[in-house]
Design a protein around this nucleic acid. Sequence first.
DNA 1: ATAGACGGAGACCGATCGGTCTACTAACAT
DNA 2: ATGTTAGTAGACCGATCGGTCTCCGTCTAT
Lengths: 188, 188
Amino acid sequence: MPSAPETKLLQTAQRLFCSEGIHATGVARIIREAGVARKTLYDKFGSKENLLRAVFRAEAEMWFRWFDSDLPATGATPRDRILYLFDLLRDWFEGGSFFGCVFINAVAEHEKEGGWVREIALDHRHRINERLRGLVVATGAADPDMTTEKLSLVIDGAIVTAMVTCNPAAAEIGRATAADIIDHAVVQ
Amino acid sequence: MPSAPETKLLQTAQRLFCSEGIHATGVARIIREAGVARKTLYDKFGSKENLLRAVFRAEAEMWFRWFDSDLPATGATPRDRILYLFDLLRDWFEGGSFFGCVFINAVAEHEKEGGWVREIALDHRHRINERLRGLVVATGAADPDMTTEKLSLVIDGAIVTAMVTCNPAAAEIGRATAADIIDHAVVQ
DNA sequence: ATAGACGGAGACCGATCGGTCTACTAACAT
DNA sequence: ATGTTAGTAGACCGATCGGTCTCCGTCTAT
């Protein structure tokens, strides 16, 4: 059970890292907006880098909740579950606190060759794609691997489009594109 | 006609801003790797921020060259021109110096609310989508606006996927997805 | 009642940041 | 031959960075 200051730090960091950028967010601002002492941050997380790792874990948990709890709870067909994922994305985009995916944003502003950030993002991507592939196979798609890659690409595209345009409609566009992909893969 | 040091600075900044991140790239490293004096950078560009603006202009020119020169030169049908765009993306991804789109990366690591970076990226996006829409209309797609938005989303998805995975195959996946979109919009 | 853990306030550190400025050199035009 | 321009090398500036540390108040378990 994390302490109250720990939770506040994590939430504040999650918001600031996405809305302002990771490098652009200084430790001073995190602790000020979290209402927490500097020492507490370093007692709980050890470093700004470890705080970022904790933010990664928190966002990964959101995705796993979507795939492992929310989507199965709909009781819908595999095809509709995939489309329902874009409804969850719309809710995320509309929440007022959406400023992009912290994995994508973090990769964008860190070294791409040999950096630990890209490795973590890649691992997260694989875990998500595994779950996505399970849904795709259940639809009876002709080429599950290719279809999964297409859908994964569309999810990333929707996230980035929503971040740049600040328009949650990117989720609807992604949803319609996903429908095109699935129909093409299944009907044949 | 830009001077030799000016060109070298621009190329070096373009590479470092994308491969290492903008905030993570110090002026000292730019001038060291460009083999140029610090004073020259400030004589030519005035500030690191203006250097970033120049990098934006340079990358925008690449996109305009694609749409206004390369695609028309193919002489192909509108549908094939849209698909050929993803061949150009593959060439970009494969070049060995691809570390994401500087517009997307810059938005990711700067403030999203009220920042000048997002405004420039949004403007660039609009200019590209105008040209894309011209091709879409020429295909006779049923809903040109929606189809354009879908294709734009897939382009962004391909760029981000290639950045995170370091795999140029994202272009092929994007191309196949674009085909699904166009076929769905035109055949009906 | 008191010892110990938790956490806030904030001084302090060396390193690095973007940016300015001086001194000097080489090329070039008149 | 000489004044001008473009560029290099590098010292230097104040501000800010991530991180460490001390001091002190508060709460709680025994």
